Structures are given as structure tokens and as C-alpha cells.
Simulated scan of single mutants.
Amino acid sequence: MARPGVEMKRLWWPVAAMMTVVVVSNIAVQHPFTPWGLQDYLTWGAFTYPVAFLVTDLTNRRFGASAARRLVAVGFLLAVIASAIVSEPRIAAASGIAFLSGQLLDVSVFNRLRRLAWWRAPLASGLVGSAIDTALFFSLAFAGAVTEVAIYGIPGFSFAAPVWVAWAVSDFAVKVMMALLMLMPYGALLRIVLPVEQPRKA
């Protein structure tokens, strides 16, 4: 097992990638997705943030769960600091809490499933991590702050809900789609990103 100092030196590229993804997503989530009239349901952040799970899963595959957790911890600290500069404090705090919870859950699920078919670990961990991340981020970032109410339903049945709830549901739907799409780069990199040592139990 690599010493912490040595391990952090070899994690510079996933840390840089993770910080970039989170900062870009924190900015993107503040901008509604306007094509096709979806501005009340979706933000651009839904399309950028799932890349964070790809970075975590590739790190987990290459260096193991311990290194992936170090990546999450360092990425969390750097991303929160950077996000506090480029976005509102509430957005930065919500992003940090959701990031830490979702990514650590992703690491655990991936590590438990890594010996199964190649696609199961990244898909399952990405979906579970995204669900927790979405629920925490939108409830902490927008509950009470975004007061607009939208009407949803079909003829004869309708209900009102805060716009941020619609954003969260739509955001997760896109993340499910992105989790499936992220299997392509993950699968393409399987022969390049090889484990450096036998994975140990979390």
C-alpha cells in the first residue's frame, strides 16, 4: 500500500479533474436549461456533474477505495473553496455536503460490486450516488430560497409543487441518462486504467 504522501502525488490528475467538474457544475446549476422550453425543469449542471462519478470510479478502479476516498476528501475541500468564490455561499455549502455524501456512497457501492460484470459497479454506484447527491443538493440549495410554484399533471388531475422540486426530479432523470452514457468512456478506458494492486475490502 502506498504511503499517503506518495498516494497524493499520483492523485494530482483526478483531483484536478474533480475540482474542475464541481466548480463548473456549481456555476452551471444556476443557469436553467432553456432549449425546448425546459427552463422550469432543468439546469445545465445536470449534464456536467455526472462526470465527477466517472472520475471517482476510474480512481477507485486504478488505485482502490482508500485512494478514491482521499480523492473525494481533497476534491471536496478544494471544490468548496473554489465554489465559494464563484457561486453563492448557500450553493457552495449545499454542493459540498451533497458532493461528500454522494461520492463516498459511490465509492462504497463501486467497491462492493467491482468484481461483477464491468458495467455493474460504475452504473449502480453512479445511480445511487446521484440520487443522494440530487436530493441533498436541491433541498439544501433551493428549499425556501426558490419560492416559485409550478403546476403539473394531466387533464382532470393536477398538483402544485415548488419549481426546485421539478428541477431535482428532472436533474436526476438526466443523471440517469448520463450514468448510462458514462459507461462508454469507462468501458473504453478499462484496458488503460488498470488496477495497480489487488483491491481490498472497504
Rank of each mutant, 00 (worst) to 15 (best):
Y41A: 07
W13N: 02
P14A: 06
D57A: 11
V24D: 03
V72C: 03
L190I: 15
A145G: 12
S101Q: 07
V163L: 13
G5F: 10
M18C: 11
M8T: 12
T20V: 09
V51A: 09
Y186D: 04
S139R: 03
A52D: 08
A84W: 09
V21W: 10
D106F: 08
T34H: 13
K175Q: 02
F76Q: 00
V86F: 09
A145D: 11
L116V: 12
D106N: 14
A131S: 12
W118R: 11
Q30A: 13
Y41G: 05
E7Q: 12
E88A: 14
A124W: 12
L105I: 14
Q198R: 14
F138V: 03
A92F: 07
M1R: 09
Q103T: 13
S125C: 04
E88F: 09
A135H: 10
G96D: 01
V165T: 10
V15G: 00
A131G: 15
N111W: 00
W44N: 03
W164Y: 15
A135L: 14
R114G: 02
N60D: 04
E197F: 00
L136V: 05
K9M: 09
A202Y: 11
I91C: 07
G96A: 07
Q30P: 00
L180E: 10
V107H: 01
W119Q: 07
W44K: 00
I27H: 00
I151R: 09
K201T: 07
A117S: 15
I97V: 14
G129V: 02
L127E: 04
A202C: 09
G5M: 09
A84I: 07
D57G: 12
I132P: 12
G156K: 00
F157S: 00
I85S: 08
L136K: 03
V109L: 03
V196R: 10
G75L: 10
G153Y: 04
V193D: 05
D106H: 05
R200V: 14
V74R: 04
G64Q: 01
A141D: 01
F137L: 07
A82P: 09
M19Q: 08
A73S: 10
I132W: 15
N60Y: 04
Y41W: 14
S66G: 13
V72N: 02
R191D: 13
A202M: 13
A52Y: 10
P32S: 14
R69Q: 02
V86L: 09
I97G: 08
A168I: 08
R70W: 13
D57T: 12
I91P: 01
R61H: 02
S87G: 02
F138L: 01
F33S: 00
N26D: 07
E88Y: 07
I132G: 09
L180H: 11
V109A: 01
A17V: 03
T59A: 11
N26G: 07
V165D: 01
L181P: 06
G5K: 05
V107G: 01
A73V: 12
F138H: 04
L71D: 06
K9D: 01
A143M: 10
D40M: 14
L194C: 10
R200H: 11
A143F: 06
V163G: 03
E148S: 05
S95G: 06
S130D: 07
A17N: 05
E148Q: 06
Q103W: 11
A166R: 12
A188E: 08
F159R: 11
S108N: 15
G37L: 04
R112Q: 11
M177E: 12
W44A: 01
P35N: 14
